[in-house]
Design a binder for these strands. Structure first.
Lengths: 217, 217
DNA sequence: TCTTATATCTTTGTATACAATAAATCAACA
DNA sequence: TGTTGATTTATTGTATACAAAGATATAAGA
């Protein structure tokens, strides 16, 4: 894995906690590299908003509840649009991929509820894959480019640990509604279902905001 | 001006033409700097999509009509939303700034049509300032963060050279409608007017696409 | 002449050294 | 003791050197 992803993962997985100060030299020593490649990774993370510049060094960004609201508003807007566009432009190949992602998500949930709690990671991945497939089907390269740059809030990844079986099933239901709307080329239904689905995720994060922040993974 | 903005301006102003290959060494010599700061600027421009990686070096991105359509779709979505949010959340101070930007845009157009054609630059600036003021009033820091990163298409800057007086007046009319909708907190009117306004800009760019591409500024 | 292997040249990626600057420490003085 | 100025230290910004990887040119053999 490259330097950028190494540092990014350390932030997302809570190894580098919010507010923690990072310097080029420290990171370089930790990763046994020179400052040059570290600088490049830091610059990228800065431009993505995951770390904020300090007078000296940088610090891991500490997101507030208001940040979560704003970021989810944005995500709702962009992904709602991409679902609508996917309903409009999807090919048979797109449908195959979306359906496959849907099934894998269902499998992951089934395995999880059968007491294999390690499968939560798989659930996160398969959920992402479903959303990815829809963004691809929307045939707007630039929306894709943008959503991929929407600020990643570390705690969102951890929020899945607080999903009950019931909530996971409801999440799956939404995937189904979205999938069917895209099949039927019902743009507005796709958009609205995607909106509700993303707001469901937002509510989950906001509800457990404080536990998520202190959680060390 | 820093390295990033120097290179960016050279691309926007057509000094580095679409498809042109740039290498770190060349740029370093041209700007009398070492490769290190050049690399940082290039990385940023790459992540913004203004230049694309080559096997060796990078090349200035050549945008297609389809790119223009997709980017404007995105801009419509984001700025339409920000106009609606501005209508909802604007303070008196926001209104003052938006109104002031509106007036300056009107002044710039007036000066321009009185045969001072050099004022086209001012028109571009004042138009941007109006949009900025609305984004600020929308009170979503993250939308702001994003719109500022929406891919800048070089030729959009030049498209103003093809605006007739009538089209400029129509653009101003839209600003007025948007301003009033925000004053009256009419979210949907603000959103729709912003949509139409941005599509007007898109049509202008698409209409003159070929002239704009060969134009050297 | 055409193909393939070798050498050469270009260009990027990484390490390191040094310069510039801001922060922290310490000392001198009121 | 508290305040100011000088000194040291920490950290970033820039330059340069060298290693690694690709591309291009060259030469040898079929």
């Amino acid at each position: 894995m490259d330097v950028y992803n190494t540092i990014r993962n350390n932030i997302i997985q809570g190894k580098y906690q919010p507010g923690m100060r990072l310097t080029e030299e420290n990171l370089a020593q930790e990763l046994s590299l020179s400052r040059t490649p570290i600088r490049e990774a830091i610059n990228q993370l800065k431009s993505e908003g995951l770390i904020v510049p300090l007078k000296r060094g940088v610090s891991v960004r500490d997101f507030s509840k208001e940040d979560i609201r704003q970021i989810y508003d944005l995500r709702t807007l962009l992904e709602g649009y991409s679902a609508a566009q996917a309903a409009l432009h999807r090919t048979e190949e797109d449908l195959l991929k979306i359906r496959s992602a849907y099934n894998l998500y269902e499998d992951a949930i089934d395995t999880y509820v059968k007491n294999d709690f390690s499968h939560i990671i798989k659930i996160v991945e398969m959920n992402q894959q479903f959303h990815e497939a829809i963004i691809n089907a929307s045939k707007n390269e630039h929306i894709h480019f943008h959503i991929s740059k929407v600020v990643v809030v570390p705690i969102v990844f951890r929020s899945f640990y607080w999903y009950s079986e019931e909530k996971l099933r409801r999440s799956l239901d939404y995937h189904k509604i979205i999938l069917e709307a895209i099949i039927n080329q019902d743009t507005e239904r796709a958009r609205i279902a995607m909106h509700e689905h993303i707001f469901q995720g937002r509510d989950q994060v906001l509800l457990h905001f404080h536990e998520l922040k202190t959680m060390k993974e």
